[in-house]
Design a protein around this nucleic acid. Structure first.
Lengths: 237, 237, 237, 237
DNA sequence: CGATAAACGAGACGGTACGTCCCGTCTTTGC
DNA sequence: GCAAAGACGGGACGTACCGTCTCGTTTATCG
């Protein structure tokens, strides 16, 4: 239902297809069984042997599927994994999140204390990143996306954007709070996309480059620095 | 002088090496000519066909070199490229830098105005990142490093660390300024490694994920937000 | 009317066929339109791209027909081509023959001069073999028949036998002439099947192995040698 | 030493090869071990599963060889089999022949009695053809050669021609006998290539088309018919 | 005449093999 | 003894077809 590439033209299905040499398969005839088997096989293999050794051939064999069935629906190994990750990865993440009490996918909590809220979420992100199950596949997808722009866009759109948008919402909420109590939590002119990057950019940097381990303490410090600045508060005259 | 992996044991040089099956090559006999040709070929190919299609065989053919000569001295295609990049990439960067008036490699300027200094450097980084010649090879190396920890460490150590260290120095300088004028530019307790990440993390994030273009204005905003915080200055009681 | 394999059982037609899992198709419902289209497509493709590159998929696509419609009625690609050849190939051959004045299908002429009659027919065979339109498909079928005994038998039965039988008839006629004029054209004990092979065997040999071109002169020589022998007539004592 | 396709230019080995894009491998570096293993595997597989199911992949696997090693030296599966057949097939045939007392490869016997000599040899050919070990591979090669002119030429040149040439020699000898005893065994004007075809053409025809079994009696009859003609000897006046 | 069952077009599917590319190792032949 | 050249065993690629198996859609008798 959410696969990345060959969408149906979404209208006039039997229209003049004869002259289209690009062979668009008919997604209404697609085998749901195979799709799931391929997702499962892909995730299992990445977990077991790593992304570099996960081959299309291997996925097909493990899924009990012909190679062509993979090539028919996905343009690359990475796209398969991304789809698998989005679809299957959602479920455990969501249920885990709900177990913790309605976390991220439900939105960043808004207790009124922006610093506390951000720390909570950044710590959660740290935890997720440190989860060994997610680590390698996510690295693989990120790496692929860095080199392959098209896949990178998919990666951002389908995996990252939903998470990042929560930060934007929370920051916007903080900005609009000015009216109610006369004290905005954030600068009135704040660009939330940039603000967000000040928060998650450092985490991503550290994770991708492995310059230092990601800890809760680190998350806290980043929030503090980002909110109140690196510069020392000017003494008042 | 700077190749990444099979160093000479650097001790006990005359020992009976002939019977050692692990075949450590004698780097003193290494052909300088081949080394350079391999570097050039690697860079040229990455530029022309992209990293994914740059093969060891292709590099060897282009360099007029036997494949074994590559395998003898480097453990992987990525290591070749990294070496090539460090050695050849340095030169243009350095000369460009000197043309601007002794910039980065010579250290971040310290005019006393931290904000201005940081903006200057971040803008320079933005420019370098936007240079199309550097873009693809750098992406390729970064992507490889994300997945391959060993190469990632090399990448950071040899390409990134020197640049990042300049930020650390400048920030430390700002912190120590307290003594001189009684007003530190930065918080006294500042951790410079984290501070640095608040500055470059956002840039890296945007570049790697292509979420938005990198501009000078963006660099300026990042510096402002990072220095003075996202939060609105508290009114004094 | 002449397709090779799944004939109707041709007896007990109303028997309980519904439960028969071997799925014998009802040939009375067969689409004449499709049959012809498949024949035409098969012949056209063999002519255009050669037999080896003529695929079932290609025939189906060209004929505007589902693959299953081919598999339903023929057991193999070769069987399709054989059918096509027999049915469509007949027509031009027959009309050409009739233009010459009631030739082959009507029987070898019997002018009383066996040598002349055989030369005439062998020359006609040479001409037919040299016709570029027939050459490749015939080679393809012959080659297939050499390896595949079942198809070979079909090939002989439906394409070759009718032609060869004419030789047998003519030779038998020559043998029976003894009675009328006291002088038989052929040995009285002659086995016509072997005699026939002495005539067409050499042509076939030369054509299949391409050891030398097939000419009228060659046909004439074969007839002479075959009729009067390789050995020199013994001088009488 | 006798493989069919990529010969060395046979002179000036190191000459300007740089501009030749057709990648001619250096046959002096060829692995004799692999060549033999491929031959053996090919023959074994054709014997076990038949030619149609003998794949390049299968040969490579059985021979413990990379596929590329096959594609490097042969243009097709059929060429491999032909080479294998010529080289390995020779040995058993030769030794069997010598056991019988210096048969074919040593030349057709010349006892002075042409009829007896030819019958002997044609019977031997019948026996060879009926040998189940040779049957299927030979059929496969013959069929391939019928469709593929290039391979057909190789087939004739390397397998057939040597055998056929013996007939030519024997017939020529018979023709030149005129001088010695005043009585030639054969017509003085005889074309030996055509005469030969009168002898082997019928056998080939029967074998390829399976119209009737090949027996010694058949061979004898062919020789008689061919030597003395189908026509009845004219009564003398 | 409308029900119904089979043939039909279309083409997705699990497979097999293709012929190519490259891997990393090994061997040969200079220099 | 390094280097160029490149053959080798091996593994995966992406493609082409195989023959089977659904899907609706005609089509053509029969109830």
């Amino acid at each position: 239902m959410a696969d990345s590439v060959p969408n149906v033209p979404s209208g006039a299905p039997g229209s003049s297809r004869a002259l289209d040499s690009s062979r668009v398969p008919d997604s209404s005839r697609r085998s749901e069984r195979s799709r799931r088997a391929i997702h499962d096989a892909a995730l299992a293999l990445v977990g077991e042997v790593g992304y570099a050794k996960t081959t299309v051939e291997g996925i097909a064999a493990r899924a009990g599927v012909g190679k062509q069935t993979i090539y028919r629906w996905w343009p690359s190994r990475a796209a398969v994994l991304l789809d698998a990750f989005v679809e299957r990865g959602d479920r455990p993440a969501r249920s885990a999140g709900e177990a913790e009490g309605g976390s991220e996918p439900a939105g960043i909590p808004d207790t009124g204390d922006l610093e506390a809220d951000l720390k909570l979420v950044l710590r959660a992100t740290v935890d997720q990143i440190n989860d060994p199950v997610f680590e390698m596949p996510t690295r693989a997808l990120a790496a692929e996306g860095i080199v392959n722009a098209e896949l990178g866009a998919e990666f951002v759109r389908r995996l990252l954007e939903p998470q990042l948008h929560l930060y934007v919402d929370r920051l916007r909420a903080a900005a609009s709070r000015t009216d109610t109590d006369g004290v905005a939590a954030v600068r009135p002119d704040l660009d939330p996309r940039i603000a967000l990057e000040l928060l998650v950019g450092p985490l991503a940097h550290r994770w991708l480059l492995r310059t230092a381990p990601l800890t809760h303490a680190y998350a806290d410090t980043v929030v503090e620095y980002a909110l109140y600045g690196l510069a020392r508060p000017r003494p008042r005259p």
